[in-house]
Nucleic acid binder design. Sequence first.
DNA 1: CTATCTGCAAATTCTTTGCGGTCTG
DNA 2: CAGACCGCAAAGAATTTGCAGATAG
Lengths: 153, 153
Amino acid sequence: MNAAGRFARYLSTNRLKMTRTRRAILEEILAIRGHFTADDLLAHFRRRGRDVAPATLYRTLARLVEAGLVHRIDMAKGQARYEPMFGRHHHDHMICVSCGKIIEFENRTIERIQADVCRRKRFTLVEHTHQLRGHCAQCSQNGTPAARPRGAS
Amino acid sequence: MNAAGRFARYLSTNRLKMTRTRRAILEEILAIRGHFTADDLLAHFRRRGRDVAPATLYRTLARLVEAGLVHRIDMAKGQARYEPMFGRHHHDHMICVSCGKIIEFENRTIERIQADVCRRKRFTLVEHTHQLRGHCAQCSQNGTPAARPRGAS
DNA sequence: CTATCTGCAAATTCTTTGCGGTCTG
DNA sequence: CAGACCGCAAAGAATTTGCAGATAG
């Protein structure tokens, strides 16, 4: 089923409604096809005259996340990012602290070890965050000041 | 060198001052010897009559992090946590979403693969966050409602 | 003595909530 | 046509910043 269909199903299952605004938000996200912030979306709407209230957008994003159609990436600092998850599977992120670019990565071995670690501690994993922050190839090259590695969690 | 000494060295190197308040904050952290929030520290001080302004605490924590003596754990939601790093080496965290408990874990293989991933993408790693959120052994057992695993990043 | 600190209060940032009118199923 | 939504404005949480007097080197 496509994204709109899946959202519709999620909504009806939960006795929620498919409104014009919700449809518009989902379409905009489908059009972006990449990482975005709540503000990005608001700006898109503002630019084309359609005004969506921040409150409404946040409420809808929360529903899309619940429905499993969108994934929220909590940044250490500043706004959260979102990304569509239609038919995609799990991956993690490298975030360039110079230019903000997000590079996705996926590693089966890490996921497996992670599961092992949880099993060993009898920890029931619900979700995880694995972000690598640093400088992307371009920024490292363009003499971005100080790319000194350091440990962190 | 001990923590106080290291902090003193960091301060003087940067033409900063070792004040009474900074000393008190560092001592309090040494006494806690575990994970804490800015609010925890403020409460400790308030309880014993010594009043430290939030602004001052946050400024000092930032310095301690810069000095490498304290590590900041950014939580997806709510307040950041801090932990002393005196003579400890890197580790990551499992966070119980039921009781808030933080369990540390450390895995050389994951760290190594992570470094490989960065090398392959020519990404200069500065720091990383690897958090597993879920239910700890106790909370899973005590019938904490709904421990249904889901994917996330 | 002078630059850095401290506490206070106000500002910020991102997100959430309360409310009165509107729309969907 | 009842219950869910929308936009607006105001609230919220955690942290940061500006300022005037205090203090360390």
